[in-house]
Amino acid sequence: MSEQTIIMETAQLELTLKRLTHQLIENHHPFRDTCFIGIQPRGVAVSDFIIGYMRQLHPELLIDYGRLDITFYRDDVRNSIHLPSETFLPFPIEGRKVVLIDDVLYTGRTIRAAMDALLDNGRPSRVELCVVVDRLYSRQLPIHPDYVGRSIDSIVTQKVKLYWDKEPRVVLYDTL
């Protein structure tokens, strides 16, 4: 059995997500040149919350929000075949600012794949990255987040998972 520690509880996670939303509003209001894209599958729960809250705060504004699946762009795609989730981008990204939203940033490989997938849909003027958890010192590619919920130190044998059920929380597992 692996040992687990809760590193963010529901109330704290909600507070963090709201803070991230306010930071995004601060930098991008009134969202005319910006669109927000959640990375499938697990980033979407987070981005649904952030965009939902953003729309609550600014019901008068049109906020472009989509979902991006990166399965076909993974660098390990053929090691084991994964089934894709839906990509839904009902707006142009050409020449606009794109904020990618994901749950946990670890090696950076998912974000590398996401940028490739994104660029096949057009050429954004700028791409930013928003993550709930940034696992420090574990990057395998030169990728850096612009908005971070919580930075944590963790080692390779640990796993960090964001659960989005009745009790949303972030859990750290020791797999050794």
């Binding site: 076909f72 762009y73 795609v77 053929r78 839906e86 990509t87 490739d116 660029l119 096949d120 849909n121 057009g122």
Partner: peptide
């Protein structure tokens, strides 16, 4: 959906 994109190609 991939076939509707401007670049209708994936590297898989």
């Amino acid at each position: 959906e991939v076939l509707q994109r401007p670049i209708k190609k994936v590297p898989s």
